[in-house]
Amino acid sequence: MATEEYGRDVGPHGGGVTGRISDWVNDHIRTVLLGPSLVALFVVFIYPAVMLLWLSLLNTRGFGETFEPAYNYERIFTDPTFWNAVENTLVYSFGSLVVSVGAGLVIALALNKVTADRLRNGYTTLILLSWAVPLSIVGVTWRWMFNGQLGVVNRVLLDVGLLSSTFSWLTTSSTAMAVIILADSWSRIPFAAIVLLAGLQSIPQEMYDAAKVDGATSLQTFRNVTLPYLRPSFFVAGLITWMFAFRAFAIPFSTTGGGPGGATETLAIYIHRFGIQLLDYGFASAVAVILVSVTLVVAAGYVYFILERMEEIEV
């Protein structure tokens, strides 16, 4: 209809090549704005992801590669170091979840009590610092602090009198795991605190006013208003923290390298060891497929949650 006013060859944006291009762009706005991203994601994500599935079906032990679909998957379940890695990953991810979301909640509640904006921003900035530290730097920092001979932790404990001689934190299985959980939490606490604080601040003031009118004490208000309203943020912070700790590579790898004797080898380090160091990429890919599957099941729960809330907001 509109084109008729301009004649046959001239669109609403004028004639000539530029006019025709801008007409075409206008008619295909979605393709123009979204297309490049989807093409990019296809190249950098779908291509390697499909390759991952394909590699997992190859026997790459020793020289050459042969197509043996079940070989790697059968091998996984008979490899005792795989189950060791699974156990470590679970201890690590749930340990980090409890510590970082727990500490994040306490920090968020405290931050929410600070009424002076500048003071609260100051605290938030300082707490955000550890989030911004590159993950391998987190690792080497904690590695250095807990060093068996020269570490500052030993130094402090010796000075205080809690230790009588230096202790090798990172070459003792249980303490090595505790240290990497602590290091991981150190880097994840800010995220949990920020998400939970945002949740606290989104609670409508009317709810508190209503509780006050009803004569509720501060403890009752906390239990019956704050906590229920915080549940969605709690869910998001917990799920994201767990999911990212479950796949963590950089922090455990740079703190302990998976040692001593595999005591802190997480699935990510396990995959890296086979895929990149031993070049048994078929086997590494099969393990990766399992790790990805587990994560995607959990991620599906998260996506479902987002889509639910999306409708609330869009309508």
Partner: peptide
């Protein structure tokens, strides 16, 4: 949400 560690091996290749 896809774990990056999963793509490392194919990406390396």
């Amino acid at each position: 949400l896809f774990p990056p560690i999963g793509l490392v091996t194919p990406y390396y290749r």
